[in-house]
Design a binder for these strands. Structure first.
Length: 954
RNA sequence: GCCCGAGUGGCGGAACGGCAGACGCGACGGACUCAAAAUCCGUUGUCCGAAAGGGCGUGUGGGUUCGAGUCCCACCUCGGGCACCA
């Protein structure tokens, strides 16, 4: 805050020359950062390849610590950004001291929209902007003292990196999912199976009778990366397809407010749905926070049920249902307005209404259609279908609450057992038949008498209840109380009659992988004159981005929904139309002009950290096995600790898992999962302030008094949220370096609370950590001379015992990433040490050294400096972490609280290992306890030796 | 609407079902100083009390238990995710 006390350095010349001030910290920090860089202190040896040092690898456990891949933003960092990086750095440094070979590096996810937008407005090539942003971020992070292996810092925009992104794309492209084997295989093996007849082609024709082009198409249909007509948000005014988040509720573009059209377009897709089951099932083997697993499960949305065929004059209509046991209650059907059978089903007298409804539904944006007030609109087609279990002829409706993209785009409506169907039936006067008898309590809760007549029901019944009205000549569910039993009985009947089968569907859709942008990885794909896609051979990689003058997608007539996008690359005429030899001589080709999405690089970057300079493979298999291979049977392998925010809980983590599994299936990696242990850090948030007009005022100028805030004398209101330019509440690491130094800043961030909790930034509190470090420094260094002041005499036993308790506690806290409590313990030790120094005059070396060692993961620069002042040569980085002496941890007596009826009435000190009687006797001797139980009857006495005594009286 | 997560002093936060509030900030008092800063030493949940001690206290209401911030049920508030998924 602006009225903060004048900084000590500036106050007068009387500040001791060697006080641990921001200025001294800066000098120490710069010195050790230079040392680490020269020394290669954090270089992690590999078992093989260019970074190999087998001798350094031998006999050590390994640890791969990873931060989520940052985008090098031009805006620079604020104090919230490094939170996770500091956390992983502290953990990594701790583990180095425990003897681990630690790999910790940071690279840059540098493709992406901001650089491209910047290029569009300034005309400067995105590479220039990207590289300067990376340089800025590297400088800011270097100043933090992170122990990264600089040799392993890669960027997705490096040609040597995206060559391998393209290579991995080709592996996926050249693979298909073999359902029988439950894994991906190379498409050559698929062609061989077609050829041998082991597998039949999609239309059943023999492989030998198909033309080359037909064979090509047959394979293309099965690839894991494939071209398909996918529904997209096409915005001709911007010349690009938009992500759902970029479309407003009104169906217009977020940027520019142009119309957006729902359209099918030919796009690259990734067949992630083939992996849906494994992506769900393998979550069980990961060490991830449960809420994140749950979010992934919900996103994949596996639901088990049955497909059931209803016959109709227009042909059979297939539905998906999770409740085939309620089939007897299906009193009507609802199709999605886009369902292909709607046209033929509609009777002449209904035609006008149906057409109008379909047109209205098509005009609605997705968001609008979903965000509706939930009124169940719909129209009857006039057509009917036959319920296969009872032969009932039931009406067929269309309604936009049924989505073409999920299941089969048609549902059987069971209004008695589904609330949506119930509302629809009530709204449109359709019959409702119960198929289950709800329990009496259900009726009682709703204040009605139990009845099988749904006319009295206020809502659908969803739950377990015995089946009713559910039988035909061949099968009866009546009386079955278990949904699962009823489901399996009716499903096997349906299967026996060829009317349906057990099926699983997923909410997960295949992944739209094309972007109409410039600043992304080009696809290693060319098209022949028939428009068929061909993969470029590995020798042609990388496919480099062509140089352009203008990076914008071509804008088109904003209202012309039928136009096609012209991505920036399409304007690179010579690049697009090319002549290449891709294996069968020089031929003319047309290049793919879309680029990959930003997710691509982050799907595999962690493996490039392992072997960043390898030119023959994306990663050496031996190196991958060493750092990421499974540890024992059933272990998935993967990164040992992955730290990042929850915002990537679904997409990034799901996409990366998918790519990793493909690479595993194809034998390129030994690990089944990329990230074995995941930890979600919290966010640092900040207060923002607004004046009477609602304008934000700079948070730094606000002062607080008695719970209200003013800025330049004017009252302001406070709100809480993210740090941001518009909120004028940004605090940068650079300001913290300037005022306190990096070690104090690191310590403050770690002390604020547990790593996984979000908390408010409060610059005012930082000084507490600086004071701690100053006290610690003063306990070991003469502030006037700068010389170490430790003495060789042995410390008093209580202090020594406290040291060993601290060692044990800090070690356990570090293992558990509980840095805030580790810091509290170090402060307590240092406070005790200060008391000792106040009387004895100096710190015993036997305390100073382990204290510095324990501090070093948190405040590495200061620890290095003190370590060298304590006459040690070289870095403290690999000095073993202190080990607690069990003999000094054991106490001979312990204080135990005494309760009477659960209320604390006194304390006793008993010998460790004292029996219950000894506890009781001591407790009874306490005056306050005696007066509390005076005149009352002791009912019983609960003694947990060493923990508590509770005397129960009446 | 459904699913997660969180509610503890003035503030950030500690606390294997066993002494609620460690540690830090802030505030108050003292030492040092001509004075201030810095530093060091204390006090600091709240109410009653001179003190000893006691009452009340972990979002609200119930419950389990000798004992609940911690476990169970219901509710309230805030944060996040999904949102007509058949």
């Amino acid at each position: 805050m602006s009225d903060e006390a004048v900084h000590p350095d500036a106050a007068s010349g009387r500040t001791p020359a060697h006080r641990y001030s921001a200025r001294l910290a800066a000098r120490i920090e710069g010195k050790w950062q230079d040392f680490w860089e020269r020394d290669g202190t954090f270089d992690a040896p590999n078992p093989a390849g260019p970074l190999a040092d087998p001798a350094a690898v031998a006999g050590r456990q390994k640890l791969f610590v990873l931060d989520m891949f940052p985008y090098p933003s031009g805006a620079g960092l604020h104090v919230g950004h490094p939170l996770g990086y500091i956390g992983t750095d502290v953990f990594a440094r701790y583990k180095r001291m425990k003897g681990f070979n630690v790999l910790h590096a940071l690279g840059y996810d540098s493709f992406g929209l901001p650089a491209e937008q910047h290029a569009i407005t300034t005309g400067v090539h995105p590479r220039v902007n990207t590289e300067s942003n990376i340089a800025t971020m590297r400088r800011q992070l270097r100043r933090l003292g992170l122990g990264h292996d600089p040799r392993r810092s890669v960027s997705t925009t490096d040609e040597a990196f995206y060559k391998w992104t393209q290579w991995i794309f080709l592996q996926i492209y050249n693979a298909w999912y073999d359902e029988r084997a439950g894994r991906a295989r190379h498409v050559e093996e698929l062609a061989a199976e077609f050829s041998s007849g082991a597998r039949t082609t999609s239309d059943g024709r023999p492989w030998s009778e198909m033309s080359v082009g037909e064979r090509h198409d047959e394979i293309d249909r099965r690839r894991l990366a494939y071209l398909a007509d996918a529904p997209v948000n096409w915005c001709p005014g911007l010349g690009t397809i938009l992500a759902n988040e970029e479309v407003t509720a009104e169906g217009r573009s977020d940027i520019g407010n142009y119309p957006v059209f729902q359209r099918n377009m030919r796009q690259w897709m990734m067949r992630i749905t083939a992996y849906a089951d494994r992506l769900v099932d393998d979550l069980d083997r990961l060490d991830w926070p449960e809420p994140i697993k749950l979010m992934q499960r919900n996103w994949i949305g596996r639901s088990e049920g049955a497909r059931v065929v209803f016959s109709s004059p227009a042909g059979s209509i297939e539905v998906f249902t999770t409740r085939p046991d309620t089939l007897f209650g299906a009193t009507f059907m609802v199709l999605s307005p886009e369902h292909p059978l709607v046209g033929t089903l509609t009777s002449p007298d209904r035609r006008a209404d149906v057409d109008a409804y379909r047109a209205a539904a098509a005009a609605k944006a997705d968001a609008e259609r979903q965000d509706d007030t939930r009124e169940k609109t719909g129209v009857a087609t006039g057509g009917t279908a036959v319920n296969p279990v009872n032969g009932a002829e039931i009406p067929v409706w269309i309604a936009d609450y049924v989505l073409m993209g999920y299941g089969t785009g048609a549902i059987m409506a069971v209004p008695s057992g589904d609330q949506r169907d119930f509302e629809f039936a009530r709204a449109h006067d359709l019959p409702i038949t119960a198929t289950q008898m709800p329990p009496d309590a259900w009726f009682a809760d709703r204040g009605i008498d139990p009845s099988i007549d749904c006319g009295t029901w206020p809502e659908a019944f969803v739950g377990e209840g015995p089946c009713v009205n559910s039988s035909n000549d061949e099968v009866s569910l009546d009386g079955i109380a278990s949904i699962a039993d009823a489901k399996s009985r009716i499903t096997s009947w349906l299967e026996s009659r060829g009317l349906g089968s057990a099926t699983v569907t997923y909410r997960l859709r295949d992944w739209l992988f094309s972007r109409q942008r410039y600043w992304g990885e080009p696809f290693p794909i060319v098209y022949d004159t028939d428009g068929r896609a061909h993969a470029l051979p590995e020798s042609h990689l990388p496919v480099l981005l062509p140089e352009l003058d203008d990076f914008k997608p071509t804008a088109l007539d904003p209202d012309d929904s039928a136009s096609d996008p012209v991505p920036p690359l399409a304007r690179a005429g010579h690049w697009v139309a090319t002549t290449l030899d891709i294996g069968d001589g020089e031929r003319a080709w047309r290049r793919e002009v879309n680029v990959m999405p930003q997710w691509a690089g982050s799907c595999w970057y962690e493996m490039r950290y392992l072997d960043p300079t390898n030119t023959g493979a994306f990663v050496d298999p031996e190196v991958e096995r060493y750092w990421m291979g499974p540890r024992g049977d059933g272990h998935t392998g993967g990164v040992d600790l992955y730290v990042g925010g929850v915002e990537h809980a679904v997409l990034h983590l799901l996409y990366a898992r998918f790519w990793h599994k493909v690479l595993f299936d194809l034998g390129h990696v030994s690990s089944e999962e990329p990230f074995h242990r995941l930890f979600n850090q919290g966010y640092i948030q900040a207060y923002a302030f607004r004046d009477a007009r609602g304008q934000t005022v700079p948070a730094a100028e606000v002062t607080e008094r008695d719970g209200s805030w003013t800025s330049n004398g004017e009252p302001v209101t406070r709100e809480y949220g993210k740090m941001g330019k518009s909120l004028k509440n940004i605090v940068t690491p650079d300001e913290m370096y300037e005022e306190y130094g990096a070690d104090t800043f690191r310590l403050y961030e770690m002390s604020m609370g547990p790593l996984d909790a979000s908390r408010p930034w409060n610059t005012r509190d930082v000084v507490g950590m600086q004071r701690f470090l100053q006290r610690l420094w003063r306990n070991m260094v003469d502030e006037d001379t700068g010389a170490a002041t430790v003495q060789e005499s042995s410390p008093p036993e209580p202090l020594l015992r406290m040291l060993h308790r601290t060692i044990a506690g800090v070690g356990a806290d570090m293992e558990g990433l509980r840095f805030n409590t580790a810091i509290a313990k170090l402060i307590e030790l240092n406070n005790a040490l200060t008391q000792h120094v106040n009387t004895a005059g100096a710190t015993p070396r036997a305390i100073a050294e382990p204290l510095v060692q324990m501090l070093s993961p948190l405040c590495p620069h200061l620890a290095e400096e003190l370590w060298s002042l304590l006459d040690h040569a070289g870095s403290i980085t690999h000095v073993p972490f202190p080990v607690a002496d069990p003999g000094l941890l054991a106490e001979d007596s312990v204080e135990v609280p005494v309760q009477v009826n659960g209320r604390l009435r006194g304390r006793i000190t008993v010998a460790v290992g004292a029996d219950e009687d000894a506890h009781t006797a001591a407790a009874m001797a306490v005056d306050n306890v005696r007066s509390a139980i005076a005149g009352r009857q002791i009912v019983k006495t609960v003694v947990i030796p060493g923990r508590t005594v509770n005397i129960v009286v009446n």
